[in-house]
Write a protein that binds this DNA or RNA. Structure first.
Length: 423
RNA sequence: AGAGGAGUGGCAGAGUGGUCGAAUGCGGCGGUCUUGAAAACCGUUGUACCGCAAGGUACCGGGGGUUCGAAUCCCUCCUCCUCUGCCA
């Protein structure tokens, strides 16, 4: 969430930024934030003063008791009764102002970076670059949902039998392709200096709030109600939460982590005819990279992560494009997001396979993720993350783009991981 | 899962109702001494909120309560340790 001080000190910049998201009620809400914070400050100051008074009376009583002046002590005891009542009501006022303020801040998205274009939807995203030739397929080419049946490598019906729609079963070469991609992605990340972690895939409420999935996106996560735990929609949640309530030293920055996890998304209400096959699933595999950086270096880190992800796509020989998301299409918590899309030739569509974002202090404020700077002051660090990569759409594009009448050719870089060259 | 024990500052570890934001030791930082280092000695060393500041307030696992006053007493939750049980 935004810092109240940022809202105060940079009101115009914040307002202007939020307007890129077509966040029309921004001005009113920002003013409300300041009002509530003022209210909070006033009640707290009053409360603290009364408390100071009560504390000093208590000390006095202690002093008198030690001197054996019981009667005098009894006399001034009454004085505190009134104070206590006032303090209690101020405490309540303070707590409710704080709660209201927090609830309000939860509804305000992150301020877009200066380079983020205005826009309402995906159509207004800016294409930063396109790489690779769009393949021309032979007559009689098939979309991936047909290919997986033809070669018997992924079975959706079996998944329906044991779980439900959107939970595919990978078989034979299909399963090996999954394992190959995961290992390839992890190995590449290690080479690029990321430290591998293997986090839990169930997280508690606190973690969900800290990275911004709760309270707003509650319906998107599977909830294990018996234990009040959530299945992660992305490894971003557990990996970033590793650093919740942590004060790092400047030397420890940047922190670079990579982790493979399955991801679970309910995708409530977003099902439709255009999401056949692997295009959208309830469970899928993803390798995620996370960085915690010094505020001055986060945009450089973002570029590095974007370049890194593009490197993966080049090695997989997939044509791709990079989009700078417009204000209206960008995620709630992000300041700047690049989406990487690969071209899936049989469908004739671009498929999003990665999203690389800088959250600046939006997450670290909730996380209380800080570092001690060179002047020994604690300040919020910046957090970033990106998919590197999400598997299903990569698989879709690999299958569709590389199909031949004699089978599906796998990119060279995967051969040692796969143990075969063609499906 | 059952029985018992325990959670205090970066770490170790005192503290069982007031003078305790908290002894002491270690570590860290600054200094004295030294050609340099070590040792020794002196000083300093948590986080957050309000305030221009002086200062004030809160925090001894989390939450609630008793009391004029809680690290200390009570309730509750969480975590860890030991034993028993179960288990990949």
């Amino acid at each position: 969430m935004l810092l109240v001080n940022t809202v105060r000190d940079q009101f115009d910049r914040v307002l202007e930024g939020l307007q890129k998201r077509n966040f029309v009620e921004a001005e009113g809400l920002l003013n409300q934030v300041i009002d509530l914070d003022d209210k909070r400050k006033t009640t707290q100051t009053q409360r603290d003063q009364l408390q100071a008074e009560a504390n000093s009376i208590s000390k006095e009583i202690g002093q008198l008791m030690r001197e054996g002046k019981k009667e005098e002590a009894e006399k001034i005891k009454n004085k505190t009764a009134e104070l206590k009542l006032e303090i209690k009501s101020l405490d309540e006022a303070n707590a409710s102002a704080e709660e209201e303020l927090k609830a309000l801040l939860y509804t305000i998205p992150n301020v877009p970076h200066i380079s983020v274009p205005f826009g309402k939807s995906a159509e207004d995203n800016e294409t930063v670059l396109e790489y690779g030739a769009i393949p021309t397929l032979f007559e009689g080419n098939l979309p991936h949902w047909e290919l997986i049946k033809k070669y018997d490598i992924i079975d959706f019906d079996l998944g329906v039998k044991i779980t439900g729609a959107g939970f595919p079963v990978y078989k034979g070469k299909g399963a090996r392709l999954q394992r190959a991609l995961i290992n390839f992605f992890l190995d590449e990340a290690l080479k690029a200096g990321f430290v591998e972690v293997q986090p839990p895939i169930l997280v508690n409420e606190e973690s969900g709030y800290a990275t911004g999935q709760l309270p707003d996106k509650e319906g998107q996560m599977y909830h294990a109600t018996a234990d009040n735990l959530y299945l992660i929609p992305t490894a971003e949640v557990p990996i970033t939460n590793l650093y919740r309530d942590v004060i790092l030293t400047e030397e420890e920055l940047p922190i670079k982590n990579v982790g493979y996890t399955p991801c679970f998304r309910r995708e409530a209400g977003s099902w439709g005819a255009h999401v056949r096959g692997l295009n959208r699933l309830h469970q899928f595999d993803k390798v995620e990279i996370v960085q915690i950086t010094h505020p001055e270096h986060s945009y450089q880190a973002l570029e590095e992560m974007s370049t890194y992800v593009q490197g993966l796509l080049k090695k997989l020989e997939l044509p791709y494009r990079v989009l700078r998301l417009c204000g209206g299409d960008m995620g709630f918590t992000s300041s700047l997001t690049y989406d990487m899309e690969v071209f899936s030739a049989a469908q004739g569509r671009w498929l999003e396979v990665s999203s690389v974002s800088n959250f600046e202090t939006y997450q670290s404020n909730r996380l209380k993720l800080r570092f001690k700077d060179s002047e020994k002051k604690t300040q919020l660090a910046h957090s970033l993350n990106g998919s590197a990569l999400a598997l299903p759409r990569i698989v879709a594009a690999l299958l569709e783009n590389n199909q031949t009448p004699d089978g599906i050719m796998m990119p060279k870089v995967l051969h040692p991981y796969l143990g075969f060259e063609k499906i």
